[in-house]
Design a protein around this nucleic acid. Structure first.
Lengths: 301, 301
DNA sequence: GCAGGTTCATAGGCATAGCCTATCACGGTC
DNA sequence: GACCGTGATAGGCTATGCCTATGAACCTGC
């Protein structure tokens, strides 16, 4: 049985006439005769009572056409729904973002994304890198904004913008007198985020690896870390986009001599079919952040 | 688009694997690949995210499969429903019956019909011949029990049994003294049914055509006519099956010398596809009424 | 690092299902 | 009795759907 056959069935039942039904279906009358006959043979039921005047639906036919109509309309609903989803730049788009980026990036890019991609229903999801990668692989995210290189051939990524790190110092800190700070000089009293944050590893690496790491202190989030620095517990590196929040907390910011920083990338599954959406989102973010490195560095002086 | 394609779609979505879905569908994996690809081209939407491990349904696919499942189950419902209706001896059977026959025949044949054709849902419809023919032609009846010859080539009929007429007399009527009555002797004071009843015309014809017809009196139904005869207003002819009711009313019955009577037939549209049901119903009625003519004539003495 | 086993995609060949035109058979009508 | 209408049938063509065989990408384990 075939959807076409069901359409034929409905047409003949409606017109009670093979010829007119055939015209309505855009086929010849013999085609309809043969197909209806096949349908009748398949079902073992006579569907129409033919006479020289008309083709009247039988009792059996009348009981079937409800189902037939349901099948045909469901099939049409499929095509209609598909038509609405044909634009890859429309529909739900679940975007993972790391916690050291989300609160500072999202306010900047929400409006531009909404304007450039009005049909895209952006659903941000904040979590640490490893959790995001897991969700990405599980098809629970469509893409993720990360500050690490992609891992594994099943994922691909595109760099969006470079974000410099800045030295964050309590105002009374001796290094605050300098206009530019060498990363390794921070190592002695540097504070870092809790395990799992990529920013923690990058901070450690930029500062020489064997840094004191602030003893027993562990900040679970970047705002907490900023509060700790402002309270004089130590120093840290912050990503450039967090400069505004850091200054609001009363922290002194200084550029770094070795230009430590991180590159924010958008990552997705290599086989993800809506690559166009990924690239459009990336493009909007990248163009909004264009030249951010220079601007942020300048503003931090 | 095709129901088969939708089945393939559902299979792949369920197994998330082309090979296993192909096995489930009983086709080869390339077949499935090609058909799903065609479906995707038709819809303009990627349905599955293929990787070397799995084939994961996309967001779009997940939104479509509801409709797809609806279409497939509707199609299966059609086949299931058709299977239940494959037996022509099952389902609704609308049988028209003339008023001078219905109340006397139905009590006799209801039980045998129920027993012989348990799946047939008999729906009797009592009306005069012309109305029955109209409804029959309008497909509002499946068959009709009539006492006239079929009219028109679009209808066919089969005789079921011969029903003799009996002379019905008030007990005090002069003719009641005879053991057999000549039809034309009844003509002088005969009463007949209202226009439209075939029994009226047959009575008139049997009695010579120019009968007095009881002046202004007109009985709308056979029970009324019997009451009128019993009250002494005149005589009439009754069909044999009504003998019991006539005797209960206190009427004297006598056989007719010219053996006037009528033949009860079952009529249906020549193209009606459930001829088997018609013939089965006719067969049950005929066998129940077999030998009725003799029995009734004997009982009426 | 390479062989072997996955995955899905592609190619070529074949059978057939579905379509068309032409024609038939049957009824009803003028 | 010729003629228009109905649906059914026949023959031929095309396109579709299927198969097997093979390819390309990827993963795994020795």
């Amino acid at each position: 049985m075939n959807l076409r056959d069901l359409r034929y069935l409905l047409a003949v039942a409606e017109h009670e006439h093979f010829g007119r039904a055939a015209k309505a279906c855009g086929v010849s009358q013999p085609t309809l005769s043969v197909q209806i006959r096949k349908l009748e043979d398949l079902m073992g039921v006579t569907l129409f009572e033919r006479s020289s005047k008309t083709a009247a639906p039988t009792e059996a036919c009348l009981r079937l056409i409800g189902h037939a109509r349901a099948a045909v309309t469901a099939a049409e609903a499929i095509l209609a729904t598909a038509r609405n989803m044909r634009d890859p730049l429309s529909g739900r788009f679940r975007l993972g973002i790391i916690p050291t980026l989300a609160p500072y990036l999202l306010p900047l890019v929400f409006a531009p994304l909404r304007q450039a991609l009005p049909a895209l229903e952006l659903e941000p999801w904040e979590d640490q890198t490893s959790a995001l990668l897991e969700r990405l692989r599980a098809h629970e995210l469509d893409a993720a904004l990360l500050a690490t290189e992609e891992d594994g051939p099943d994922l691909v990524s595109l760099p969006l913008f470079a974000e410099p790190f800045l030295a964050a110092l309590p105002p009374e800190h001796p290094l605050a007198a300098r206009s530019m700070i060498l990363e390794t000089d921070l190592a002695r009293d540097i504070l870092v985020l809790a395990d799992g944050h990529c920013l923690r590893d990058q901070t450690v690496e930029a500062c020489g690896g064997d840094a004191g790491l602030g003893g027993p202190l562990r900040a679970a989030s970047l705002p907490t870390l900023l509060n700790m620095v402002a309270a004089g517990y130590g120093t840290t590196l912050i990503p450039g986009l967090a400069a505004g929040a850091a200054q609001d907390a009363g922290i002194v910011l200084r550029p770094l001599s070795a230009k430590a920083g991180r590159t924010v990338r958008i990552a997705w599954r290599a086989h993800f079919p809506r690559r166009a959406a990924v690239e459009a989102v990336g493009e909007v973010i990248a163009s909004r952040l264009k030249g951010f490195a220079e601007g942020a560095a300048a503003g931090a002086v």
